[in-house]
Every structure is written in structure tokens, then in C-alpha cells.
Design a protein around this nucleic acid. Structure first.
Lengths: 217, 217
DNA sequence: GTTTTTCCTTGACGACTGTCCAAGATTTTT
DNA sequence: AAAAATCTTGGACAGTCGTCAAGGAAAAAC
């Protein structure tokens, strides 16, 4: 009995230790994944090396193989970090907008804000989505993130239709590819330094949104 | 006088020789650029090496630096080859369709035909367009090709509106990003082996087209 | 047929890659 | 304070990369 009790105590103690170490381990994994994310955003998938990632962290390159099985494992974790950052961006706008005009205007504003602010992160997303066209090992994560992005856009547009007293004219997928297409195009011209084209896309976006929503008369 | 005449003859002779050599030189450049295109389509930009390209041609890797200044020069030429192949795809459909229903149906058919047929080429295009988000040296070519693609789509949709007796509801850019977005998404699911989603996108495409065109009553 | 020019192969170079490991530094446990 | 477990470093490894140059093969010019 005593032996068992002691053993239980010992176990739970070791468990506590183990759990703490796991937490610490995970924290460092996340830290390194974030450094990876920044490196990828800066250089793109094709030119990102482990040594470059390590230089963007406070560790040496050898440590990466202590926390990650290989490069793919590391990059996959970085992609998951991206998702955490990026997928609830418009929820606040949806939550507190009380008129359709307000929602549309604030969505457009945030759309182009994040375009300028997080341009390198966004180009990374498109880079990785494209990588998944060649490398099957990214596909599952990419498709999952894409689904979440689609849902995010849908929350905005369906709420807009609701406030407007109309219905969304296309499917969730159609709405998503349209707005994502506008974003991709704006990103390209933004990075190319063509502010004029970006401004034009911004001016057109409200019309694009209205194209996707049929107002009931 | 005679000297001058002889010199002229000699010059024009040398010119002829020079021209022929230039033609031969260009022909081989094109040949190697095509091999590059196939390699890029297969492996993607990130994993395409000069030795791999050479293996897809009938030459050895050293010859690439005889015909091209460096890797960038070679890949740029390959991108230009892509444009030649890809940008008049729907013109025949536009030319011989006599009803709006026919044009729409044949466009949809060709849209998904090329999706399956030239999937690797298309994923290369998206790969290179994305590369231009990181590497400015591709941007000019990418933007030019993108413009041509947009014009190609516009020819289809504006003709469709004409046959239908309506007007296009969005700008040329809006129409392009929407249909290109559908294509990108269909390509991803096609390469992921998800035939069901591709079929759904195909079934939805006519509605997407009609969304972009307002029929006059 | 010989010389000259053009074309192509082969091997080498330095730099860079992902991966692994021995050994030292640090932290935790006893 | 000693011992054990954990973390981190920095160098070595086997490859691969783009690039280049020497020299042989082929073609063209005479």
C-alpha cells in the first residue's frame, strides 16, 4: 500500500516535471517557428535555409534539429503559426458594424490595411499555397487554412447581405475566390510599387462586393 | 571602286552568315527554354536545377552557359515561351460560337480541359507569378503575361455579354480575378486528387459567369 | 583537304544545403 | 554541493548548386 501510494506520488511528481518540460519544449518550438515564419516571409520558400532561420533567432543552426525532426517539420509548424495569426482578422469588424455601409467601408479599410502592413506574410501564404501544388506534404495544412479563410470571408459577406436586407449571389467558394483574387492582385501591384493600381482596386472593391450581394427591393 | 564593291559584297556575305548563325543560335535557345519549361512545370521553381534541365534536353549541363548568361536569363526565356503557348487558348471558341449558351458551354469545357491537360504548366505559371512577389526581376514579364491573360478572359466574357444582349457587370480586372480564382482553386483540388470538388466548381462556373454579366430585360 | 570557327562535353571550383554528432554550457534534481 | 538531465554550440559530413574554363568534336570556310 505505502509502496503504491509513494509510487503514485512519485508518478504525479514526475508527470508534473514532464508536463513542464513539454510546455517549455513547445514554447521553444513556437519561438523557432515564428522566426521561421519571418524568414520565409522575407526570402520566400525557395531561398529559405536553416542557417538563415537560425540567424533570425537567438540560437545557432544546430538547435533546429533538436526541436524539429527535419526542415519540413519546421516549416509545417511555421505554417500553422501563420494560421493562428491570420484567420480572425475581420471578426471584430463584423461584430460591431451596425449598418451595411459601415461594414463594407471598414472591411475595405482593413483589407487594404493588412495588405500594406503584412504584405510579406501574405506573399508567404500564397507561396506556400503554390508549393502545395508541387509538394503533397503541405496540401492538408494548406487546404485547411484555405477553408478557414473562406469561412472568414463568408462571415463578412453574409453579414453584409443580412444588414443590407439581401442575399449573397454566389456560393461561399465563389465569394472567396473573387475577393482573394482581388487581394492577390493588389498584393502583386503593391509589392511592385504601383500605388495607383492599388488605389484603383480599392476604389473598385465596394462595387465588387455589391456584385456578390443581391439587394432585395 | 572595285575595292569598295568587293568590300560591300564581302560585308553582305558576312551578314548573311551572321544572320544564319543568329537564327541557329536563337533556335537552340528556344529549344533549351522549352526543356526548361517542362522541368519547371514538373519540379517547380524551388527545385529546378540546371543539371536537371539539361537532363530533360539532349545536351549536357555546360551548354546552358553557352546560350544563356545565367540561370535567371534561362528561366526568363522559359517564361516567355510559356506566354506564347498559353494566351490565345479561347480565341477559337469566341470566334465560332453563335449563341451565348454555346459560348458559355464551350468556354467551360475548354476551361476544365486545359485544367486537366496542362495542369503542370498552369501550376508553373502560378509559381512564377508568386516568385515575382519575392524577386523583382520577374515582375515585368509576369505583369505582361497577366495583362494578356486578363485581355483573353475579357474577350470571352464581353463577347458572351454581347451574344446575350447584356453588359458585363464588373471591370475587366474584376472579371479576370474571379475566373482566375476559380481556376486556381480548381487546379489545387485537381492536383490534390479531389475530383468531386473539381466537378462542383465546374457545375458552378456557368452561374459565376452569369453573375459577371447583367442581362438586359 | 586544311584551317578556322563554332559548338558541346567534361570535370573542377567554391559556396551553400540539410543533417548529424561530440562536447561544452546550463539547468534541474537529488 | 554533487550528480543528472537537458539544452545549445559549432564543426564535420556528403550532397547539390551555379558557374566557368580547357579541350575535344563537329561544322563551316577557304
Amino acid at each position: 500500500m505505502t509502496d503504491v501510494a509513494e509510487s503514485k506520488v512519485a508518478e504525479s511528481k514526475q508527470d508534473r516535471i514532464a508536463r513542464r518540460q513539454v510546455d517549455k519544449f513547445d514554447a521553444r518550438r513556437t519561438e523557432l517557428a515564428v522566426a521561421t515564419l519571418h524568414t520565409l516571409a522575407e526570402l520566400g520558400y525557395a531561398r529559405t535555409s536553416l542557417r538563415e532561420i537560425a540567424q533570425n533567432s537567438e540560437f545557432s543552426h544546430g538547435v533546429l534539429h533538436y526541436y524539429f525532426a527535419d526542415k519540413r517539420d519546421l516549416i509545417t509548424e511555421a505554417v500553422r503559426q501563420y494560421e493562428v495569426v491570420c484567420v480572425t482578422r475581420y471578426d471584430e469588424v463584423v461584430a460591431h458594424a451596425v449598418t451595411s455601409e459601415q461594414l463594407r467601408a471598414e472591411f475595405v479599410a482593413m483589407f487594404f490595411d493588412t495588405l500594406g502592413q503584412d504584405a510579406t506574410l501574405h506573399r508567404l501564404w500564397y507561396d506556400l499555397r503554390n508549393q502545395s501544388l508541387f509538394d503533397a506534404s503541405f496540401r492538408a495544412d494548406v487546404l485547411e487554412i484555405d477553408t478557414h479563410r473562406e469561412a472568414m470571408v463568408w462571415r463578412v459577406i453574409s453579414r453584409y447581405a443580412e444588414l443590407l436586407g439581401g442575399v449573397v449571389a454566389g456560393s461561399s467558394g465563389t465569394v472567396y475566390v473573387t475577393l482573394d483574387g482581388v487581394f492577390q492582385r493588389a498584393l502583386l501591384h503593391h509589392l511592385a510599387g504601383d500605388a495607383e493600381t492599388v488605389a484603383r482596386l480599392r476604389a473598385e472593391l465596394p462595387d465588387v462586393i455589391d456584385l456578390l450581394v443581391s439587394k432585395a427591393d
